[in-house]
Nucleic acid binder design. Structure first.
Lengths: 175, 175, 175, 175
DNA sequence: AATGAATGAGCATTCATTCAT
DNA sequence: GATGAATGAATGCTCATTCAT
């Protein structure tokens, strides 16, 4: 394995560790903690991400990549409406790690054309299938994903989370 | 002016300054900054609020009080549906300071019976007037207010904010 | 009661409170705490004792006065040797409040002629009675009182305290 | 020099600086002051000793180590009685730095088996040689060392210190 | 490239002291 | 005189960032 490969592997380990740590303690967690989790020294973290902000951005970018991946994966589903709903539930649903994906949307989605593209396809197909009202665009969907995530994060009551999410999904249905 | 009055005035100034500073920099803003904004020494801030957490709680409690006030004020409106919608727009709407009110809901609404009461009245009247579906309770409304606030905070585009909010309100209408 | 009398009463209350608080928490205890215990405002404490140091000094002076009082009281005892030993046990013995008296000796005894006088009488009589070696003076006794107090403060084991004290008293006996 | 060696050297410098500063200003001296004296940043002090208490403990432990060292060194002396007396004079004697050793005894001697061991040997040999009465144990000796140190610390008069110390040593002699 | 020790600005909090009432 | 609110310097501790090895 070339040294370059080692460095890449380290970068990935740091990124993964940061993602975990940020999910658990928020992005105010110390860089030391991230380094410890990654099994590297702080210096290594800073070599790959020269700033705490750069690390945070990279984590968000990676999460965004996964959001796009999920969207693409679901786009193959035959039932376009179900795919759209599943996507919503996946991101805004009950489990912490997935909710973290939405944080990435809030932080930088507007600029990321890949994600906008994947989401656009999912939305477009759902609209053509008559499962989603036709007067909404990708931006509204992103805003609602963010909102739904926060709304469901607020409470520990899982059934309340489900009911809240359904209200938002109802709002997205054609009248 | 008795010392008591002076002290109360100072307490209020600190609280107001903290509210402002927290809106601008989040509640991690330094106590020094709050003191500076209030035009007092740090010691004074700590005399009135012995802990950073106590200050944060007090700011939220005050915001919550204002939320309750708004709800009560709107409860007098003859058009119960309009009152409910106006409340939603007020808290989740476009202006920063009002959005801060929702933060208070997210932080502590569950425990505050006054706010739950005022909100309950507003919701109940809107439901009786047929403006809001009958299968939602105060908790769903709070969750949605939080969600709507975050959804609209995300973007600077005011018209997008309006459209997003309307989708949520549509979800709350009787089918 | 004249205002002067009120002020004197307050001074005494503050002094008593400071003594108690210093015994319990050491003289690093806050002035606020002393004021609270005395049932007065901080301002009153500072009016009577313009400095923390002044308060500490006053507490020590008062303790010294009590040391002198004890010495005088014991000087009446017919058995001069017993009186001397009792004095030693009183100051260096097991109970906290009495040990605090010795702190005052450590802080300022050299200068206080009253205490030196009372102690001198006690010592002199014990020496004449053949209970204490004749080659020691007041200074040695003070130094040993301080030492004995610290030696016995160190341990919680009461019987050990007693044995340690006896060794010192043995050292003071004529050979 | 490996980083490890540098770090160790720094740890030692901090420890030495803390010892000095604590001798001069007591262990309430600020960590800043210790850092300044050591010629390092505060962060470095806290890296090596994560808490003020940890630093104090480390200083005491180091002093205790030196106490044990002295005891061991003196144990080789042929005249066991002289060795014991020399030890007493060393710890409770006239020079400040040595008196600081006793502070360590007061703070933690009970738990440190090494020191108790070395002291025990010294004491035992002195007792077998008939220089120290047989009814005292290590605890009494420690208590008396503490007492003697305080007794001699109290005064600046060196000859008085010597006389006071001798009285205590007389008390330790077989009757 | 990786390491982790060093740095020092920054933060929450305490407390002696002052002063308006 | 008495009160206690206000002040701000000082303290212990954290953490992003740098750099010698």
């Amino acid at each position: 394995m070339s040294p370059r490969a080692d460095a890449l592997r380290n970068r990935a380990r740091v990124l993964a560790a940061a993602d975990e740590v940020f999910v658990e303690h928020g992005s105010t967690a110390s860089t030391e903690e991230v380094a410890r989790r990654a099994g590297v020294g702080v210096g290594t973290v800073f070599r790959h991400f020269p700033t705490k902000e750069a690390l945070r951005d990279a984590v968000y970018a990676e999460r965004l990549r996964r959001v796009g991946e999920e969207a693409s994966r679901l786009a193959d589903n035959t039932d376009a409406g179900a795919a759209f709903h599943e996507f919503f539930e996946l991101l805004a649903g009950t489990s912490g790690p997935n909710q973290a994906l939405t944080e990435a949307l809030a932080a930088s989605a507007t600029d990321d054309q890949d994600v906008r593209g994947s989401l656009g396809v999912l939305l477009d197909r759902a609209q053509r299938a008559g499962a989603v009202r036709s007067d909404v665009g990708v931006d509204e969907v992103i805003a609602l994903l963010i909102g739904a995530t926060q709304a469901t994060t607020w409470t520990a009551d899982v059934s309340l989370r489900g009911r809240t999410l359904n209200i938002i999904l109802d709002g997205l249905r054609p009248h």
